[in-house]
Simulated scan of single mutants.
Amino acid sequence: MELSGKVALVTGATSGIGRATADLLAARGAHVLLSGRDERRGAEAVAAIRAGGGEADFLPADLGDTDSAQDLARRAVQVGGKVDILVNNAGVFPFGPTASTTRADFDAAYAVNVQAPYFLVASLAPAMAERGDGAIVNVSTMVAGFGMAGMALYGSTKAAVALLTKAWAAEFGPHGVRVNAVAPGPVRTEGTAGMGEALDQLAAAAPAGRPAHPREVAQAIAYLAGPDAGFIHGTVLAVDGGRTATS
Rank of each mutant, 00 (worst) to 15 (best):
A104P: 02
G54R: 03
G29H: 12
G150P: 09
G196W: 10
P184D: 14
S140Y: 02
E216P: 11
V161E: 11
A169K: 05
G173D: 08
A206L: 02
G12F: 02
P126K: 00
L202G: 00
A149K: 14
G12S: 01
A181R: 08
L164E: 08
G209F: 06
L59E: 04
A167R: 11
G53F: 07
A127M: 05
T192K: 03
V236G: 06
L124A: 02
G36L: 07
G29P: 11
G132T: 05
A162L: 14
V46N: 00
A229R: 02
L164G: 07
D105V: 15
A205F: 12
A170K: 15
R188A: 15
M151I: 03
E171F: 03
G147A: 15
D71S: 13
S156H: 06
A51P: 09
F119I: 00
Q70I: 07
G91P: 07
A193Y: 12
A208N: 00
Q70Y: 04
D200I: 09
V83M: 08
T66L: 11
A222P: 00
G5D: 12
A222D: 00
A144G: 09
D200V: 09
V121Q: 00
S247L: 12
A218S: 05
H175R: 15
L202M: 14
G52H: 07
Q219N: 15
E55C: 09
L202A: 13
A108P: 01
A212S: 13
V239N: 07
G191E: 07
A13S: 12
I221R: 00
P186T: 14
D23Y: 15
G91E: 05
A43V: 06
A43F: 01
L153S: 06
S100V: 12
Q201C: 09
T141E: 02
R50V: 11
A218H: 05
L3F: 12
V121G: 01
T244G: 03
R19E: 13
D105M: 15
A104Y: 02
M151P: 03
K82I: 08
Q201I: 13
G150C: 11
K166W: 09
